[in-house]
Every structure is written in C-alpha cells, then in structure tokens.
C-alpha cells in the first residue's frame, strides 16, 4: 500500500533491485560527497577565489591539478568548496519540506473533514506553481542569497511530501494499534508524534532522499542563472555558468566537471532513495 505512493519507474527496476552493487556504489559516492563537503576547506589546495591570471584556461598542471577557469581560479578547489553550497541548499529544502510536509500531511490525514480539504487544496495550489519560477520570484522579491530560493523550493516540494504523508496516515490510521492508544486515553497529538509519524517515517525519508536529488538539480539551475548563491561563493551551478566561455575557448574542464558532478550526485541520491523506499515497501508486506 505504501509502495503505490512512491514513483515507480519500471524500466529501471532491474538495475535497481538485481544489482546491489549499483546501490552500494551510489551509497559510497553519496557518503564521499558529504564527507568532502564537510572537510572541504582542509582539502582544497588553493583559495577558491584566488586569481592566478597566468594559469587562466590552462590544462591540468602540478599547480592546478584540474586546471583553472577563465579568471585563473583553481578548478579543483572550487569544486571541493562548491560541494558545500551545492549540498547545503538542497539539504535546507529537504529539511524544510519534510518537516512541514509531514506536519501538513499528517494533520490533514488524521483530522479529516474540512481541515483535510483546506490543507489538501492549498497544497495542490502550490503544486500548480513551477518550483523554479516560484524561486525566481522569491529571489526577485527578497534579493540574492541562499535563503530565498531555499524557502521557495521548500514550498514547491512541500506538496509532494504532504501528499505522501497524508496517504500514509490514512492507511495507517485504520490499524488497530492506533485505536488501542486512543482507548488508552492518549491524545491525538501524542499518538501522532510518538507512534504514527515514527511508523511512516521510513517511507517519507526515502522519498525525501529522492527529493534531495531533484532539489540539488533545481538549485544548480538557479545558480547557473546567477540567482542561487551570492557572487564569489563557489558553487557547481555558477561554475557551469562561468565556464561557458572556457567551453568556447576549447578548455572545457572547468565547465564539464561540475556538470558531471551534479549529474552523478543526483543519480546517486535517487538510486539510494529508491532503494530505501523499495526496502521499506518489501518489509511492510
């Protein structure tokens, strides 16, 4: 019953379930990216904003292992430090949208009636807004910085989480153990917080992991447009933007590497998330 709430992609099923190796590789990659992001300042060989114009648009060399961009900034250092902003944004989005989405979805599913109608309709209204446009609107209103697009995209991702949480709550509340707690005299709030939410959490978290990949993509798109992060902050999306000229000059490394990293990270998060969702769904049966 919970499996139906998650997106199924039948074509990918064989890759996902038969070859556990792919999952483990992706999990290792996700772990690596997270660790790198945490210790990036100690790993980076150079200041990511130091301009070494002599090295601008050169091939990899001992001084710049992955070359330098058009302003002579070290690509490797920018990639390493860029992982921080690139992961921090989606992390904020996933955290906000998961917490808020669970609150909205569980409230709607548990209370039912007009509260359900009001919450469900308004989250469907949010669904009608394209997330990126909403983010651009927020940036236009509140200026640059990480906060505005994170809030906007959190709102855009909220309906996905709240719809899932609501349908899980509806199926879970049929189960007698929740009725038993009501008979025991526990309040609805404490039943939801202590019993219902922990029991639906695995499925919601698996979905949130999948959302993380999409949020990363959206944030990269925003910073590619120059809206996501403040200038000078290293970020994969803005690196691709800055690398466009380098691409035309025949030294594509500083633009292609962040592209590859984004794609691989998004895929890795999706594979890990879907694997968790599959595992939870199997256990439920």
């Amino acid at each position: 019953m919970t499996a139906a709430a998650l997106t199924r992609r039948p074509g990918l099923k064989h890759i996902r379930t038969r070859r556990n190796g792919l999952y483990l590789t992706c999990l290792a990659f996700v772990g690596l990216v997270v660790v790198v992001a945490l210790i990036a300042p100690w790993l980076a060989p150079a200041d990511p904003n130091a301009t070494d114009l002599g090295a601008a648009l050169t091939d990899p060399s001992p001084g710049h292992p992955l070359g330098a961009d058009i302003a002579g900034r070290d690509t490797l250092s920018r990639l390493l430090l860029g992982s921080r902003t690139s992961l921090l944004g989606p992390l904020g989005i996933v955290a906000f949208s998961t917490v808020l989405g669970v609150v909205v979805g569980v409230t709607a599913g548990w209370r039912g009636g007009w509260i359900d109608t009001a919450l469900s309709r308004s989250s469907e209204l949010l669904l009608a807004f394209p997330g990126l446009l909403l983010a651009i609107l927020f940036v236009a209103l509140y200026g640059e910085g990480l906060l505005a697009p994170v809030v906007a995209l959190s709102l855009a991702y909220l309906p996905f989480v709240s719809r899932l949480a609501r349908s899980l709550t509806l199926s879970e509340r049929q189960r007698p153990y929740l009725a038993a707690y009501r008979v025991q005299g526990f309040s609805g709030l404490s039943i939801c917080v202590r019993h219902l939410i922990p029991n639906i959490a695995p499925v919601v978290l698996a979905q949130s992991t999948v959302n993380f990949g999409y949020a990363l993509l959206d944030m990269a798109a925003l910073s590619f447009l120059g809206l996501g992060v403040p200038p000078l902050t290293p970020d994969w999306g803005s690196m691709i933007n800055a690398g466009q000229t380098a691409l035309l000059q025949g030294k594509p490394l500083s633009a292609v590497l962040p592209c590859v990293l984004i794609v691989v990270t998004v895929v890795a998060f999706n594979v890990v998330g879907e694997h968790w969702a599959d595992r939870v769904a199997r256990r439920e049966r």
Partner: peptide, 14 residues
Amino acid sequence: QMVFQDPFLSLDPR
C-alpha cells in the same frame, strides 16, 4: 479498556 482481536495489529510494532 479494550482488548482487540488481533494482538499483532493492536500493538505498535516499533
């Protein structure tokens, strides 16, 4: 108080 039919379903599995 009430004791339900199926004890497996009436206890929180966690």
